[in-house]
C-alpha cells in the first residue's frame, strides 16, 4: 500500500508541486521560443513527453550495468539518440509541425528536465517508478507550456488556430478579439514578460497555500 502511494506521489508531484518549468525553472529554453502559437506549444509538449518517457525507461533499465564513473556520458548519448529518433519521426509523420518548430526539437538534447530527471530519479529507481515520474514531469511541462502558449496567442493575436499536426489542415481558426489584441505579447519581450508574471503568480499562490497549511498545523498542535 505504501509502495502504491509513493508511486502515485512520484506521478502527481511533478505536475503541480514540483512543476519543472514553473517551480524548478529547468528547461526554460524552449518555453520562450515555442509559446508564440498554441499549436507549437502543445506539439513541443508532446515531443518532450515522448523523449522523457523513452529516456527514463531506458536509463532505469540499464542503471545497474553502467559503471558509476561514466554515468553522465552514457546518459547524454542515450538522450541524444532518442531526440534524433523523435526528430526523424516528427519529420516523417508531422511535417508541418516539424517545419514550424525547426531546430528547437534538437535542442531537447540539452534540455535540463531530461538530464535532471534521469540523473536524480531514473538512475536510482525501478522502471515503473521512472515511467510514472517521466509521465508526471512530461505532463507538467505539457500543461504549463500549453497554458502559456494559449494565453500568449489569445491575448497577443486575439484568437486561436488549431491545426491537425499530421495533415496540416486547419481544424479551427477564429480571431474574435483581433482589434483589441496586445501585439506586444506575441513578440520576444512579451514572452519574457508572460513567463515572469506566470512564474511570479504561481510562486505567490504556492507560498500562500504553504502558509495556510502551516497555520492549520500550528492551531491543530495548540489544541
Amino acid at each position: 500500500m505504501e509502495k502504491k502511494q509513493s508511486l502515485l506521489k512520484s506521478f502527481t508531484n511533478p505536475i503541480f508541486k514540483e512543476n519543472p518549468i514553473l517551480v524548478s525553472l529547468l528547461g526554460l529554453c524552449p518555453v520562450l521560443i515555442v509559446t508564440d502559437t498554441f499549436d507549437k506549444s502543445w506539439g513541443m509538449g508532446i515531443a518532450v513527453l515522448l523523449v522523457l518517457i523513452f529516456t527514463n525507461v531506458c536509463i532505469s533499465l540499464i542503471r545497474k550495468i553502467v559503471p558509476n564513473e561514466v554515468r553522465i556520458p552514457v546518459f547524454i548519448v542515450i538522450i541524444a539518440c532518442f531526440v534524433t529518433i523523435v526528430d526523424l519521426l516528427m519529420q516523417a509523420f508531422t511535417p508541418t509541425l516539424y517545419e514550424s518548430l525547426g531546430v528547437i526539437i534538437s535542442m531537447i538534447t540539452v534540455n535540463c528536465i531530461i538530464l535532471g530527471r534521469g540523473e536524480a530519479f531514473a538512475s536510482k529507481n525501478g522502471v515503473l517508478a521512472s515511467l510514472l515520474d517521466a509521465l508526471g514531469s512530461g505532463i507538467g511541462f505539457f500543461l504549463s507550456v500549453s497554458v502559456i502558449g494559449l494565453l500568449r496567442e489569445f491575448l497577443g493575436k486575439g484568437g486561436l488556430t488549431l491545426t491537425n499536426p499530421f495533415t496540416g489542415q486547419v481544424i479551427f481558426s477564429a480571431y474574435p478579439l483581433e482589434d483589441y489584441a496586445i501585439s506586444f505579447l506575441a513578440d520576444k519581450a512579451g514572452a519574457f514578460l508572460m513567463l515572469g508574471i506566470i512564474v511570479g503568480i504561481y510562486s505567490y499562490v504556492r507560498i500562500r497555500i504553504e502558509e495556510k497549511e502551516t497555520k492549520k498545523l500550528a492551531t491543530a498542535e495548540v489544541k
Binding site: 564513473e69 561514466v70 553522465i72 556520458p73 552514457v74 547524454i76 548519448v77
Partner: peptide
C-alpha cells in the same frame, strides 16, 4: 565519438 568522450570524462574525473 562515444569512446573518446567516455575516455576523456574518465580521465577528467
Amino acid at each position: 565519438a562515444v569512446s573518446l568522450f567516455c575516455l576523456i570524462y574518465y580521465l577528467n574525473s
